[in-house]
């Protein structure tokens, strides 16, 4: 087990990775604009023409935006750096592979949080009220972390082609959006639909968001948070452990 000073030292170095990621990958006009517009259009294309209330739409839109933005760039950072030949120098620095992965996750987390302000502000402008701000804030933070971690799980296979990783990510991401109670509330799904919904972490976030805005959810909020926490832990452990194995094979 690493001692405390080492953990703190590595945590500080993770933050340097976060700043690097934000400068290079996130603080770019197109990345930000696409981050907001893509989920908005996808969402509108499935909700337009249906007579849905703002209270119903905003939690779904927020869930989608958070999910897509927090998983948008994090999967391709490592393959991209291997291809651009910056990864080798990173790996020869006194940082653990875990430190690099956690840095990439935190950058993605920050990006997800920042962009999620857009649908929240739109919602507030359209007159929604957040009935339980504490649970809501907790859920947004936890979900951003969860999805950011999932993003780095996608990049575990040691391919240095960002496009391959993007494909792997898309194959998972799109179905997840459709099974997570975003377009159809969980209560209205048949039993088998609900069973499928429970394998998606996005389901639990959407449920808390609905609880916080519409006043009632499908599952108890504490359970939602707990499951979200469990997903986050699993993704984090899987990502750090497996990247440890695959990263040297990228060089």
């Amino acid at each position: 087990m690493p001692d405390m000073p080492t953990v703190l030292q590595q945590a500080r170095r993770s933050l340097a990775i976060v700043r690097k990621d934000i400068r290079i990958y996130y603080a770019k006009g197109p990345v930000i604009i696409f981050g907001v517009l893509f989920p908005v259009f996808l969402f509108l294309s499935f909700t337009i023409g249906r007579h849905l209330s703002v209270d119903f739409m905003i939690p779904g839109l927020l869930g989608m935006i958070l999910f897509f933005t927090a998983t948008s760039v994090s999967p391709i950072v490592i393959p991209w750096e291997a291809q651009a030949r910056t990864l080798e120098r990173l790996m020869s620095c006194p940082v653990k592979i875990e430190t690099i992965i956690v840095g990439d996750i935190l950058a993605s987390f920050a990006f997800g949080l920042a962009i999620s302000l857009v649908p929240i502000l739109i919602g507030l402008f359209l007159g929604i009220t957040i009935l339980s701000p504490l649970f809501f804030a907790l859920a947004v933070i936890l979900a951003a972390l969860c999805f950011a971690s999932l993003g780095t799980v996608f990049s575990i296979p040691p391919t240095n082609m960002p496009s391959t990783v993007n494909m792997i990510a898309a194959v998972v991401k799109f179905p997840v959006v459709f099974i997570s109670g975003i377009f159809v509330p969980l209560d209205e799904l048949p039993a088998w639909g609900q069973a499928i919904a429970y394998i998606s972490p996005l389901t639990y976030f959407t449920d808390i968001a609905r609880y916080s805005i519409q006043g009632r959810g499908h599952l108890p909020v504490a359970l939602d948070l707990l499951v979200l926490l469990a997903f986050t832990a699993v993704f984090l452990v899987v990502a750090t452990k497996l990247h440890h194995k695959t990263m040297p094979r990228r060089i």
């Binding site: 030292q9 500080r12 933050l15 990775i17 030949r85 910056t86 120098r89 620095c93 006194p94």
Partner: peptide, 24 residues
């Protein structure tokens, strides 16, 4: 390293400061 690159999208100075942070 052989054939390694600095970050093209960062300035030379920011590359150096990043490395300094990674070495503490």
């Amino acid at each position: 390293p052989e054939m390694a690159n600095a970050y093209g999208d960062l300035s030379g100075w920011h590359n150096i400061m990043l490395m300094a942070e990674l070495y503490g």
